[in-house]
Computed example of a mutant assay.
Amino acid sequence: MGANMRTAITVVPPILANIQNSFSLPEWFLGSLTTIPLICFGLLSPTVTFFIRRFGILPVTMADLGLLAIGNFVRVYSFTGLLIGTICIGCGIAMLNVLAPTLVSYLFPMRIGTYTGMYVFAMSLSSAISAGFSSVISQWISWQVMMQFISIIPIVAIIVAVCLSVSQSKAEPNKGQAYHHGQTQTSPWKRPLAWALGGFMGLQSLLFYSILTWLPPILMASGIKQNTAGYLLGLLQITALPFSFIIPRIISEAKRQSTMVLTIAVIFVAGLSCLLLAPMSFWFAVVACVLLGLSTNMAFSEAMTLFNLKTRNPNETAAVSGMGQSFGYLLAAVGPMLCGWIHGLTGSWVVVIVFLIVILALMTSVGLLVDHERYVFSD
């Protein structure tokens, strides 16, 4: 599951130039290769609860993985295929983003921190590999073959999901109905805490996808070669791997979340500040990627774990996660294109980085609100 949640997107930024040259794309469209999936995330996230109730958690998961595999395969043939494939990928990952915390709550309700850490680890590892090596591998086997090869990951996940579904059907024939118990009586859209969770989710996603999209061009503007910029993007992804298991457990066991939110903010500021100094020294770029990798991973872990901590059953988790990710990803979708617009207007990456620091301040303020209520649906 975790290996499918970012790989199809993180593989793109280091090879944007290759894609642009192959299809003669206008420069303004390049940012949309990240933005289109985010829009899909926002529009489809609220629908996941309906599909789960209608078809069941594991069948919906398998269908979404299939959509993701198809999208990866078709987006290499033409501009039309690229657009259709990107939409399919966005739709597939949109559903998986909501399904991931719901599956943890459904399958492992007593070990939320541990299993959240496991899929965050898988997500970070696969993202690091795809971001760090896509530029180099595309020079060996072409970027088209490389993208199609990624389809293997969701196919393997489908096989695992089928085995899990068969195993659970034999062991507990009625477990598939457990999701229907404890349905919420109030819409999460009417709950202030759900809006706070959605705001935090959206702002941390805006930061991550803006950095993901524009970090290679920012580094190349500092005099770093394209392949090296790709390696540094991979370093950003892989930095947090040692902490992927630890951070969700710390979050799930903490009585208050304010300390973690402030810690994330401090590391973020340090990373963005080092990025400002990257033109002075290559090592500032290295440190920036390490700090930004750690802070983005911590922020994502915080957001996803909170969906479980602030709800009491899988139904509530799916409802709040769907609402929070819908609002959050629609907010995040403006980030990459807005950063591109700011750079085009000013010709300066410094202004873009300052803009990201302002977004960070907003994210921190919203994050501090999550301690005000214990659960989204309070009695």
Rank of each mutant, 00 (worst) to 15 (best):
S321A: 15
M62L: 00
W283I: 07
Q237S: 15
S105G: 14
C339Q: 11
L83Y: 05
N313C: 09
L369T: 14
L360V: 10
I141A: 09
K225W: 00
V136S: 13
G324P: 04
F355G: 06
C163L: 14
F121P: 03
A194M: 09
Y209P: 08
I155K: 07
I70R: 07
V145Q: 12
N308P: 04
A332N: 04
L96D: 06
S210I: 07
F73H: 10
T184F: 03
Q237K: 02
I264W: 03
K175G: 02
T346K: 03
F149N: 08
L82W: 08
A229S: 15
V145S: 14
A17K: 12
Q148P: 05
G42D: 03
F133A: 13
P188A: 06
F121R: 01
R312D: 12
I70V: 15
P59F: 02
I141D: 04
D371Y: 09
L360W: 05
L331G: 03
Y106T: 13
I87E: 01
A157C: 14
F243I: 11
L276E: 11
Q20R: 15
M62E: 02
G324R: 05
L292G: 07
T263G: 15
N297H: 12
M323I: 06
V120E: 13
V162I: 15
R111A: 13
G340Y: 06
T86G: 03
I267Y: 05
I39C: 07
F23V: 10
G85P: 11
L67G: 10
Q139I: 03
M5L: 15
S130N: 03
E373H: 15
L219K: 12
L25A: 12
T213E: 01
K170W: 07
V286Q: 07
A285Q: 09
A332V: 05
I129R: 06
M201H: 00
E253S: 15
A94W: 06
M95K: 07
F133E: 04
I137K: 00
F79Q: 14
L235I: 14
T80P: 04
N297S: 15
A361P: 05
S78E: 08
M146H: 14
F355N: 05
T311C: 15
M95E: 04
M5G: 02
G71R: 10
R54P: 01
W189F: 14
M110H: 15
G31K: 08
S78M: 10
V376H: 00
D64T: 11
V11M: 13
M62R: 04
L306P: 03
G234P: 07
N297A: 15
L44R: 05
G117T: 02
S127V: 02
F121S: 11
G71C: 11
L338G: 01
E27H: 12
R53D: 09
D64S: 15
Q204C: 08
Q237I: 00
T114E: 12
V354G: 03
I224A: 06
L338E: 00
T317D: 00
V74N: 04
F245T: 09
G328T: 01
M304Q: 12
V354H: 11
V266T: 14
W341E: 08
T311F: 04
M1Y: 05
M363G: 11
